[in-house]
Nucleic acid binder design. Structure first.
Length: 138
DNA sequence: CGTGAGCGT
């Protein structure tokens, strides 16, 4: 019976294909749960700039980053008690490309003697409490 | 005189 030998032939081809590491290597299953892609954060126009010196103010930071794009906002967190800056701030750019360029260019560089640590800012919005449009109580 | 990792009103 030639049909039987043909089936065994195909079965052998299938088994070899399964055992083939190059064939199995393409069978990777990706689950789209929540892979903590810390290395690829979604780039925003907002940059988190840390590693700042305690003598750095917003205008110095803006002047340092205004060379890479249009800085729309520069915010440095200051300590209300000691009055000294916490050494980290946020730089808002007009475009994500500018922010990415500035990050790639200024990250690791030094400003006022201290190396800068730049990363994309988390969209942490505070305030702006959800105001519920209340209908006239009548 | 030193301080230092980090995510904000």
């Amino acid at each position: 019976m030639k049909k039987n030998s043909l089936i065994r032939f195909i079965a052998r081809r299938v088994s070899t294909a399964v055992d083939n590491p190059v064939s199995t290597s393409t069978w990777r299953f990706y689950c789209s749960h929540s892979p903590p892609s810390s290395s690829s954060p979604p780039p925003n126009s907002k940059l988190f700039v840390a590693g700042l010196s305690w003598s750095v103010d917003e205008k110095s930071l803006k002047d340092a980053f205004s060379s890479f794009g249009n800085v729309s906002e520069v915010r440095i967190m200051y300590d209300k008690d000691t009055g000294r800056s916490r050494g980290f701030g946020f730089v808002h750019f007009s475009k994500e490309d500018e922010a990415r360029c500035a990050k790639d260019a200024m990250d690791g560089k030094a400003l006022l003697g201290r190396p800068l640590r730049i990363s994309f800012a988390l969209e942490k919005v505070r305030g702006a409490p959800v105001v519920v449009p209340r209908l006239p109580s009548t």
